[in-house]
Write a protein that binds this DNA or RNA. Sequence first.
DNA 1: AAGTGGACCTGCTAGC
DNA 2: TGCTAGCAGGTCCACT
Length: 271
Amino acid sequence: MPELPEVERTLLSFAERIRGARITAVRLGKPLRWPLGCDPQQLVSQTVGEVTRRGKYLWLALDSGGLLLHLGMSGSLAFNAGAAPPGPHDHFDLVTARGTLRLTDPRRFGAVVWSPAADAGPAARLLGGLGLEPFDPAFDGDYLHARLKGRKVAIKQALLGGAIVVGAGNIYACEALFEAGIDPRTASCRISRPRAAKLAEAVRATLLRAIEHGGSTLRNYRDADGKPGGFQLLAQVYGHEGERCRRCGTPIRRIVQGQRSTFFCPGCQRR
DNA sequence: AAGTGGACCTGCTAGC
DNA sequence: TGCTAGCAGGTCCACT
């Protein structure tokens, strides 16, 4: 499900409400991608602090260390006062005096991992290789151009990798490349400086616009209040194979790159 | 170092 | 109507 905009909207929908809440119980369902990494009892009676985002990860600060959360492909978080009994896809409940934070994740690619700090232990390992945040002023044409230099991978895959810039997953990488007019198959090293600048701006603008529209709900995604996103209605290429490009009328194509679908307009997007 | 492909797991849908 | 193949918002890891 969740690329940066969905994770950001999720954060915005519960961070303020959960801050300062005391944990009264922790319930685990089926195993997620990684084990929790601590005795669940150790979390009880701790107080939740700030909730922050790094890439597609959320960090819930606790009195002692914190929890690193990832929503995988199909995960979503809900924060409710009176949580229903857990269903078959509810794999983590953090019960607090203010409500229950629940991770629902049918495919279980998501994760909840305790770490002594965001920059130590398992969190440091998972966050360590991440690239710049797209809204970091340092993420500009010069930076992007420098990081693409010497790389032969297709630009779409370089964006998805997350080691250069975080946050753009399959939907937003396709949309940003459309916005920038760049063919997703273009070798990274062949992106000129001006086009890198255009692409950096397109990544930022696409993600920002998606956040403003509540993210994309293709199937599962809801924020922690249960609200779906609306950006999927604004997608220009993602999921539109065979339809005419809204800008130039050329039929949108679907190809496979790195075992993922890529959608693009052969008319608007050039190598 | 960089590139590639497989792995993880479940549910939905299109097509026969 | 029922079965099956293919596809899905991510990313880590092993291997070349």
